[in-house]
Write a protein that binds this DNA or RNA. Structure first.
Length: 564
DNA sequence: CTGCTCGGCA
């Protein structure tokens, strides 16, 4: 009964059952408490978990091995690794030695933070102690390498597993399938699934959902539907995750009406809706400028007592920020804290962003400091947001200082970081410094792209250095650069499947379309076909690239003129 | 009653 309540997310009812148990003369034991504790931790609601633990102790129930492990898992999930380690110390003090579960969860926590090397070290440590790494340990590390390290290292570990005589299980295979999907290698992904048929671990629900998602992301909706069909034929019912994948695809295609209809009819079709279903549509509404519908959906979700996760909160906070309703956004932030949720980097970045946009750079930095305090690592998003805030507030020197600190600390930066700094420098007329950064970003293989060029071009033009501007423009149309651009577009997975379907994948037809649209000044439409043809793997003629890029420069010029 | 794989936010 209690388990049932937890599964439905009705924690309060679960807790009230504990009281009822007592009325019937049976007392909750540690299993009862551990069950509920586990669900709080899974949902990231640590405050409530803490309260329950306190309650448990007051009832004189000693935490057991399960209790400790549940807490380790809970802390690891939200990235509080120090706290997780404290629990382990506590375990030792209570004569409960960390077991394979404890190690695996800690390794998973480290991988989640991108700290793979430390995770591997922990695995070695296990081997030296009596706790031998198992298939779960390997799966965790393999997935960690794919996510945050190199795939070579991931595959190396797969080999190591084989050498040790460990069998790759369904999860191992699913991790590989997911990785192939992420790389856009759908053929290899489905080949892996086919191999699973022959191994002792046939494809399961996760495999199918992974493939469906992969095909959706690749814009291959036909294959996605085929996979859903196959999933059904193999006896797997589609579940909430399948539904959410479809919802997301519909939203991305701007088919909000269909998405909303699907959401409404889902329960009739036997689907369970969760906070991801609502959050997906919510984000879709905000993206498409239908904020009123989004807010309506939020209250509908609350009415149904579906509990928002930190990501759901991030979505609504971001939406409110975009509406300029900063106060309301902040109040949602406070609400999630009250609900015992732990804000993540995205939460902070979103609010830092809105402060920067409002010119409250000091407040933005306060929040940045808070982030560090909470041992959340400011990431490349944080950096870019702060830099852009400083630049547009006329504090270029401070921006440069931050930029240099960031680099000297060896933290990751990306193309956006460079473009932000370059455009900041250009605005102040510091072209030589900007050029310096352009060559630096080239060295790091981070560009330049048309944002970089347009910043530089704008600065050259306003300095009256027209010859150099021309020179730059011709550099832009170098074929090498276009290759890079098209690769990037592929990676960004820009989706326009409607166009993809509508246009002839014949390379000449595409090229002609693009050139024609450019001639008409419809550069945006031209870009969309360019993206679509990229997706289909259509090779365009060189002149298409040139016309398109020249068109983009003109458009950027037109835009920057409009701004001035 | 605890761990690894699938869906969403920046």
């Amino acid at each position: 009964m209690i388990l049932g309540c937890c599964l439905e997310g009705k924690f309060n009812e679960a807790i009230s059952f504990i009281e009822k148990m007592k009325e019937f003369g049976c007392f909750p034991d540690s299993v009862t408490y551990n069950t509920i504790l586990g669900f709080f931790c899974k949902k990231g609601r640590l405050k409530e978990a803490g309260n329950l633990l306190q309650d448990m102790k007051e009832k004189g129930l000693m935490p057991n091995r399960y209790t400790f492990n549940i807490l380790v898992s809970g802390y690891c999930k939200v990235g509080w690794l120090k706290e997780a380690r404290k629990v382990i110390d506590l375990m030792v003090q209570n004569d409960v030695l960390p077991d394979i579960w404890t190690y695996n969860m800690l390794i998973n926590g480290l991988c989640g933070e991108g700290r793979i090397e430390e995770a591997v070290k922990l695995k070695d440590e296990m081997e030296h102690s009596k706790v031998l790494p198992d298939v779960v340990t390997y799966n965790t590390l393999i997935d960690g390498y794919f996510k945050h390290g190199s795939s070579e290292d991931g595959f190396r570990l797969v080999e190591e597993m084989r050498e040790k005589g460990m069998e790759l299980n369904a999860v191992t295979n699913n991790i590989l399938v997911k990785w192939y999907c992420k790389e856009g290698k759908m053929d290899e992904a489905s080949e892996r699934a086919r191999m699973m048929e022959e191994s002792g671990f046939p494809p399961d629900k996760v495999t199918y959902n992974t493939l469906i998602n992969g095909y959706c992301k690749a814009g291959k909706l036909g294959e996605a539907f085929e996979m859903m069909d196959l999933m059904g034929r193999k006896g797997f019912k589609m579940d909430t995750i399948t539904l959410n994948t479809i919802l997301h695809t519909l939203c991305r295609e701007k088919k909000l009406k269909e998405a909303s209809e699907l959401l409404n009819s889902a329960s009739n079709r036997g689907y369970l809706l969760d906070e991801v279903s609502y959050g997906t549509l919510l984000a879709g509404y905000f993206r498409d400028g239908m904020a009123d519908k989004a807010l309506q959906l939020w209250s509908e979700m609350r009415k149904k007592e579906i509990i928002p996760s930190i990501i759901t909160y991030n979505t609504i906070i971001r939406g409110l920020c975009q509406l300029g309703k900063t106060e309301q956004a902040i109040s949602k932030f406070k609400e999630l804290l009250r609900n015992g949720l732990v804000p993540d980097a995205t939460t902070y970045n979103t609010i830092i962003h809105v402060y920067c946009k409002e010119g409250k750079v000091e407040k933005a930095f306060e929040l940045h400091n808070k982030m560090v305090e909470k041992s959340l690592k400011p990431d490349v998003f944080t950096c870019n947001i702060l830099l852009s805030g400083l630049c547009s507030d006329g504090m270029l020197e401070k921006a440069l200082k931050l930029f240099n600190t960031w680099i000297s600390e060896g933290k990751a930066i990306d193309q956006v970081t460079y473009n932000t700094m370059i455009s900041g420098l250009c605005k102040e007329g510091r072209l030589e410094d900007a050029f310096h950064l352009v060559s630096e970003m080239k060295e790091r293989n981070l560009g330049p792209d048309h944002y970089t060029y347009s910043a530089i071009l704008g600065a050259l033009a306003s300095a009256g250095r027209m010859n150099e501007a021309d020179e730059f423009m011709s550099k832009m149309v170098e074929v090498e650069n276009f290759r890079e651009q098209s690769l990037q577009l592929k990676e960004q997975n820009v989706k326009t499947s409607e166009i993809t379907e509508a246009y002839d994948p014949d390379s000449n037809a595409c090229s002609e379309q693009i050139i024609e649209l450019c001639n008409q000044g419809r550069y945006k439409d031209a870009m969309r076909i360019f993206e679509a043809s990229n997706q289909k793997g259509v090779t365009l003629s060189k002149s298409t690239y040139i016309v398109l890029m020249e068109g983009l420069i003109k458009r950027r010029k037109r835009l920057s003129k409009a701004v001035q």
